[in-house]
Design a protein around this nucleic acid. Sequence first.
DNA 1: TCCGTTACGTA
DNA 2: CGTACGTAACGGAC
Length: 658
Amino acid sequence: MKVIRSNVRGPVTINVVETERDLLSFRQFVVDNPHMGFDTETTGGFNWWDAPDNYGCRLAQFGNHDTAWVLPVELGGPYVKAMKWALKTAKRLSAQNRGFDLHVIEECFGVDPYPLVQKMWDTKILAHLVDSRGRDQGGIGLKLEELVPHYIDADMGAKVKKSMTEIAQSLNAVKEVVGFKARNKDKETLEFRFSDHPGLTKEDLKAQGLSYIREWKEGIYGKVTKDTVWGKVPLDHEGYLLYAGMDPIFAFRLVNILFPLISRKSLARGLIGWEHQINWITYQLERTGYLVDEEYTRLRIGELKLEEDKWKAVAAKWGVDLIGSSDQIIKALEAIGHKFTKDSKRTKPSKEHPQGQLSTDDSVLQSIDHPLTEAIIKAKSAQKKRKTWFEAAYNNRDRNGRVHASINALQARTARMSITGAIAAQTLPSGSGYVRHCFVAEPGHVTACIDFANQELRVAAALSGDRRMLAAFAKGEDLHQLTADAAGVPRKIGKMCNFLVAYGGGAKALADQAGIPLAEAKAVVDGFNRTYPGVAAYAKKRAAEAKQHGCIYTITGRRLIVDLGHEYAAINFAIQSASRDITVSTALDLDKAGFTQWMRLIVHDEIVFSFPKERAEELTAQASKIMEFNKMGIFVPAEGEIGEQSWGSVLELEESKH
DNA sequence: TCCGTTACGTA
DNA sequence: CGTACGTAACGGAC
C-alpha cells in the first residue's frame, strides 16, 4: 500500500490500494466511517455513455475529514467489488456533482444508482443554496476548484487545479527513441521507425547515402494534453493519486461547511431534499437520452454544408474569407463603399475597447443591401445550424443511436436549469421544426409537448397581486392587447412591453427592441404602469428589500443574492425563480405518477414526452392535469400538444401556437 | 492552449 | 439600468 501525506489545514493521508491485501484496511475504514466523501476518476470527458468501449472509470475514492482511500477500479475484480461494498455499506455519502459519478459507476460497473441517491449529498446543490451566483457574477462559483479555495484552503485550490496540467506536461517530457530521421540528396526528410525497420542502425542509413541522420524521439504517452491526460496518466503516478485522493476529502468537508450556511428559510421549506429529488429525475432523463433520426440529421448536414460553401465562395469574392471575422467584414464593407459613421451601431464597451467596436451583427448586415451582406448572412446561418445543432446530435450518438444531454437542474442564479452537450435544448430554433425533427420519440411512440401558458406573466400577476392583470387572466382577456391599447400601439409592442417590465427593463430597452422612438417607448411603459399599477409597486418593493438585505427570498424560500446597484433585477429574479420552481414542482408530481419513463426534456416552461401512440391522448391529458399548477395563490394552466414521431412535428401542427 | 469578445439561438 | 442561459468563431496572449 502506498501512503501519500499532504497538508490541508492539518495533516492529510491518502492511502492508495495496490494489492488485494490492502483492501482489508480499506474495509475497516469504511466500517469506521459511516459518512464518506466519494469521487471517481475516469478516462476523461463526459461521454460516460460510451463505456465500456470508449470510456472507462480508473479510480474510485472515498474519504473523511483527513483520510482518503484510492481504489484502482480500472483493474477490475476485487477492487470494483470493494467499491460496491463500500457504497452499499456507507450510511451517508457526499460528492461534488454526484450525477456524473453515478453515471460513471452505473455504466462502467452496473451499479444501481437508486439506493445511492437516497443517501448521497451533492455539494454542488448545497453550494448553490448558499450562493447561487457563478464566479463571473461576483459569487464564489459552483465548481470544486472554486469552492475549495473559498471554503477550505486558498493555496490548495490553486495547486489542485494546476496539478493535472503539470502532470500532462511531465508525461510529455518522457520520450523514447522511436527511429531515425535522415535527409536524402534532394534534401527531403525521411522518417524510419524501428517498428517498420527492426534492427536499423545509423550505419545502414549512411550506406544508403543519406545524411543528417538523427535519432527520432517521441513521447511514450503520445501527445498528452489537459484533456487526454486523464486516460494516459499511469495509475501509480503520485501527483495524480494526490489529486484524486483530495476530492473525496473536499466533498466530505464541504458538506459540513455548507450546511450551516444555508438560510433558515430554505431549510424550513425542505429545499435541500427537494433539489436532490429533482436531481434524481434529471439524472434519469440524462441516462434515457433522446433518440436521433439518423437519416434526417445526416441529410440536413450535407445540404447545409453545400449551402454554406456556396455562400462562403460569394463572400470570398469581396475578400471575406472568414465569415466570423468582424475585422474582415468591416474592411470589405468599406471597400464596397459603405460608410461607417459615429452613429453606426457599436458593440458593448469592454476593457480593450471602451467605446465599443463597430458591430457587424445581423441587424447591421440586414441594413446594407448588397450581395456580400446577403452571402455573409446566409453562410453564417447555415454554418450555425450545421455545427451547433445537427452535428452535435449526429456526432454524439451512442451505440443505440441516442444522445445524452447534460442537464444541470440547478444552474442559473435563479435556479433555472441548463441543458448542454448533444442537445442544446434551450437554443434550438422554435420557429419551425427544422432542427427539432432530429429528435424523435421511440418507435411506435409520438412526441407530446406540454407547456405552461404565459407562465412568467401569470407568476408576475400572482406575486404582485395586481388586480387588473389577475382579472385579465381570469377573464381570458388578451394581456398584450390591453397593454398595447393603453398607448395605442400594435399588439406586438404591447407584448414586448409586458415581458420587459416584468424583467426589470425600461423604455430604453423597449425602444431598442421594438425599433421605436424613445418617447413612444416611454408612453407604452407609462401605459403599462397605469394599467397594472400593482406590478410596478411590486418591483419597487422587491428592489427595496434587495437594497436593505442584499438578497431576496422567493416563494419557495430560496435566497437569491442581488448585486448592489442592480436591485432593479430583483423582480425578475423573483419571477424567474418562482417559475422554475413551479416547473420543477410539477416534474416531481409527474415522477410520482410514473411519467418519468416517458419524459425526455424539461425546457423552462415546457416538458417534452415520448408517449406510446395509442395512449398518447390519454397520457397527455393526464400529464396536463398533473402539471396544472394551482398552489401558493398562483394558477398556471398547462396545455398539451401531440405531434408525430419527431419533436419538430409538434411545432408544425396546424393549430399550434408556435 | 487558453481566454476574452462578439454574435446568435432560446425562455 | 431586461435577465437567464449555451455554443461557435476569431484573434491575441502565453
